[in-house]
């Protein structure tokens, strides 16, 4: 009998495969229960029209009691979106990935939140202190203690 987190992720995956994921989202990789990658784009009128990003989820066996580690993929092909809550190393400052995470959320609901975070962006700019953060950031964004004080974007 598989571990609880694998059973839960298995069910989420089955849902994604059975029902097509919401518009703008596409599952790129889910070969194991460590790392899943989604392609994400913002449909409709937004600053990110025509741009595609890859969102990486990392899980461990504390899922869903603690949030997955979620970040944009930054490599030779992919870039993180320019957004006041997204650092250039792909780390995202969003409260639901930290203190407001709830075990009733799911991979898809995180994707949708990120999608709407991008959709509602009014000005493409980097977060304050991006360079400092990127220089010192841990590999895992969950090890960063973000302070969430702007819920307008």
């Amino acid at each position: 009998m598989a571990a609880v987190y694998m059973r839960r992720l298995g069910k989420e995956l089955r849902e994604i495969e059975t029902e097509a994921p919401p518009a703008g989202l596409r599952l790129l990789k889910a070969d194991d229960f460590d790392t899943w990658i989604f392609q994400i784009e913002v449909l409709g009128d937004s600053l990110y029209r025509g741009e595609r990003f890859a969102l990486k989820f990392r899980f461990d066996n504390t899922y869903p009691f603690s949030a997955p580690a979620v970040q944009f993929v930054v490599d030779s092909q992919m870039r993180a979106p320019v957004h006041p809550h997204v650092y250039t190393n792909g780390h995202i400052c969003a409260s639901i990935l930290g203190e407001d995470w709830s075990p009733t959320l799911s991979v898809i609901s995180v994707c949708i939140t990120i999608q709407s975070m991008l959709a509602s962006c009014k000005k493409k700019e980097l977060p304050e202190g991006n360079d400092t953060y990127v220089r010192t950031a841990p590999d895992n964004p969950k090890k960063t203690h973000f302070v969430y004080d702007d819920d307008t974007v």
């Binding site: 059973r7 298995g10 995956l13 849902e15 059975t18 889910a30 194991d32 229960f33």
Partner: peptide
């Protein structure tokens, strides 16, 4: 990938979900 393999788990009849 051993027991971490997604397909192994999904093929496992023990796991039931609404998409049955």
């Amino acid at each position: 990938m051993g027991k971490n393999n997604v397909q192994d788990l999904l093929n496992n009849a023990d796991i039931q979900d609404p998409f049955d």
